[in-house]
Design a protein around this nucleic acid. Structure first.
Length: 685
DNA sequence: CGTGGAACGGTCTAGACAGCATGTC
DNA sequence: CTAGACCGTTCCACG
């Protein structure tokens, strides 16, 4: 009989002699006993290894596992690691929103790495898939308390355990104050530790004084944190500086880069193409000095550029909004938290201790730094009190966020649609098994369930026959599309309109009014163009949400009318990352609208499909066929079209010379495009 | 009367998950 | 509730 250590050595470390940390050993012993575990230790303490062990152990017995992450980027990271580990032993699939893996991946792979929403979505189709899964890994499970996305994890967990009571749960978490409570809910053995492989030294900055974690002054800082950053850099460390707005992140990055001595750093850093992207230009300029900023206004390409160059050490300082606090593993010798407050819902407030801990957890690179350093900047006595609270009381308890009508509504529809709950009583029982009920008492979600089933019946999502709740067509489609019932309602209401009223602008406006679209913030400068837009679509905004939806619709309209990125950035004061995220969610909702139309307003289905594709590519409809050629995007397609190449077949018939002569087309590119265009002609005719 | 600059008031603010087909009396 | 930077305008002291 192989011991746990043997298995890890043989299968994971390929025979290398590795000693495990105490919390890893304890967890592995529990896993060997077939029990579920909740591992609560600080970040960067080798928690994933515990999950990998459970997965390997299951695979060895021919059993399947699912690894659930809170973020796509994290899922990719774990997927790569698991694939490397599993080589020759088990197969691994990555399933996240923008990847088309199909609903049958559970049958085809041994291990599935996915986001919690993806797993939830699979469950909307068929909850029984949990029967085929022996090990369920829930990474970063402290996110279960997250206001918007926590309940997804909670529902997933609840369902999995009802469907498959034997499922072995490996829950990994940052330090949890109420670990025993969560562990009890999960029926898992709690393994807790404060162990950090790289020790963390905490400091506080207050009025030009540098203090230790007992608020004793150990140094003075004449030039604020710039002096501190310089010191860390000359000492060979890297710095992550957290701020609370994008503008501040950018400003600090600029200021720091101006103070940097270029000779300190090799100028070997690559440059990313700018394409008129304002952020790319700035990042290129300051990255040469080893500095960059990071926030959601950056598109994926620039973000990856910053992350990769920080990992390789070419970038020494990143100034960041909370984007980097969670998410991919990007440690630095020193973390500086400059802002402890954040503005939201009309006023400024302190961020949670949990969030501060997440940022602190980035300090110290395993294998590179013998310790990590965390500096918390306090501008006021209030901030000092906040830090004292953090040091003395630690993180807040993790509390279920299920108690909101919108969330209960979304999940209730799913439970009815997939036949998991067929009566009101079974819904009550289900919600009594949630973390919310375990924290607030059984029956505490009953009122919500009553309300939302009323809503769902009223608007035709479900029907009641005696005791039996059954999803109507609208309900099933909605649950399978993974859209909010309110979104479906807005779309179906839109189908009532006459054909001639349905301009693209109006459709986009309706789409942006759905709760599944994250709208843009409206500025004073937007009022004028917004009122013009509302005139054009003959609507009058009733509140700020309508204004925000209008602004977002305007941006999308510009996008599909081929307005250059930099003009959109300028006009709406957004970054290319904002455009990227809006277009992808709009594309999803419009596709969902097309599916709903197929059932409820057939003739709109095709035009909505076309609109979805236009959103994806950012083009007018005349160049849609050109876009499908690899290497041809909105800009090149338009140029081809203007020069007489209106269809792929026009290109297939042409010569390299004729195309390479166009601006922006090299000879190689022309060759490739012609080659692709030819094969396309073959397959489509 | 012209100018520099302090004082004042208005404005603005983080992040990021999801689908798509296909059936039947 | 637990903010703070920025920017344009106003207003006052002073030459």
């Amino acid at each position: 009989m192989e011991t746990s250590m043997d298995i890890i050595k043989n299968y994971y470390f390929s025979g290398k002699n590795v000693s495990l940390y105490e919390h890893q050993k304890k967890s592995i012993d529990e896993i060997d006993e077939g029990r579920s575990v909740l591992v609560s230790v600080p970040t960067a303490s080798g928690k994933s290894l515990i999950a990998y062990y459970a997965i390997i152990r299951a695979a060895k017995q021919g059993l399947k596992s699912m690894y659930i992450c809170p973020l796509k980027a994290l899922a990719r990271e774990k997927f790569d690691e698991l694939r490397a580990i599993g080589k020759g032993m088990f197969t691994v699939a990555l399933s996240v929103g923008d990847l088309d893996a199909g609903t049958d991946i559970i049958n085809r792979f041994d291990v599935i790495v996915c986001t919690s929403e993806k797993a939830d979505s699979l469950m909307h189709h068929n909850p029984d898939y949990f029967n085929d899964i022996a090990v369920l890994v829930l990474d970063e499970i402290h996110n279960i308390g997250d206001q918007t996305r926590g309940p997804t994890l909670e529902i997933l967990c609840t369902t999995a355990r009802i469907v498959n009571p034997d499922i072995q749960i490996i829950a990994l978490s940052a330090t949890l104050q109420n670990a025993p409570q969560i562990g009890e809910w999960l029926d898992a053995t709690v393994v807790r530790s404060d162990f950090r492989p790289v020790p963390l030294k905490k400091f506080v900055i207050f009025r030009d004084k540098l203090m230790d974690d007992e608020f004793q002054q150990i140094d003075s800082l004449k030039k604020d944190i710039y002096e501190l950053i310089r010191k860390i850099l000359y000492d060979g460390g890297q710095v992550l500086l957290f701020l609370n707005t994008r503008k501040r992140a950018e400003k600090f990055a600029m200021d720091i880069s101006e103070q940097m001595d270029e000779r300190m750093f090799p100028s070997s850093i690559d440059i990313i193409s700018e394409d008129g992207d304002r952020n790319a230009e700035v990042v290129n300029r300051i990255a040469k000095k080893g500095v960059a900023f990071h926030h959601a206004g950056l598109n994926t390409r620039i973000r990856t550029f910053v992350e990769e160059n920080f990992k390789s050490g070419r970038i020494k300082v990143i100034t960041s909004t909370p984007t980097l606090a969670a998410g991919i593993n990007l440690p630095a010798r020193a973390v500086i938290i400059r802002d402890l407050t954040r503005f939201s819902d009309g006023y400024s407030s302190y961020i949670s201790n949990m969030e501060i801990e997440q940022m602190l957890g980035r300090a110290g690179r395993p294998k590179y730094d013998d310790h990590g350093e965390a500096y918390i900047y306090c501008p006021s006595q209030g901030a000092i009190d906040k830090v004292k609270d953090l040091f003395e009381n630690g993180v807040e308890p993790v509390v279920s966020a299920m108690g909101k009508e919108k969330i209960v509504r979304f999940n209730t529809l799913a439970l009815i649609s997939n036949h998991f709950c067929t009566t009101l009583d079974s819904l009550y029982t289900f919600f009594d098994s949630t973390l919310y009920a375990s924290q607030n008492g059984k029956g505490t979600l009953k009122d919500y369930v009553d309300q939302v089933t009323g809503y769902l019946e009223n608007y035709g999502f479900i029907e009641t026959k005696g005791q039996i709740l059954k999803a109507e067509k609208l309900g099933t489609i909605t649950a399978n599309l993974y859209i909010d019932p309110e979104t479906a309602k807005i779309i179906v209401d839109m189908f009532e309109e006459n054909e001639e009223e349905m301009s693209v602008a109006r459709i986009l406006y309706n789409i942006c009014k759905t709760p599944d679209i994250f709208t843009l913030f409206v500025n004073r400068d937007d009022y004028e163009s917004l009122s013009a837009f509302f005139d054009e679509i003959s609507e009058s905004p009733e509140d700020e949400d309508d204004m925000a939806a209008g602004k977002t619709a305007m941006l999308l309209l510009d996008w599909i009318n081929e307005v250059p990125i930099y003009e959109i950035e300028e006009k709406y004061s957004v970054g290319s990352g904002d455009i990227e995220s809006r277009k992808s969610s709009a594309e999803w909702i419009v596709m969902a609208a097309s599916r709903l139309a197929a059932e409820f307003r057939r003739e709109l289905s095709y035009p909505l499909d076309v609109l979805s594709l236009r959103l994806k590519e950012g083009v007018r409809d005349d160049i849609m066929s050109l876009i499908s050629i690899p290497g041809v995007g909105r800009v090149r397609a338009r140029r081809l079209y203007e020069n007489g190449f209106k269809k792929p077949s026009d290109i297939a018939k042409s010569t390299v010379q004729n195309i390479a002569i166009l601006r922006g087309f090299s000879k190689t590119l022309a060759e490739n495009i012609i080659k692709s265009a030819k094969t396309m002609g073959d397959s489509s005719e």
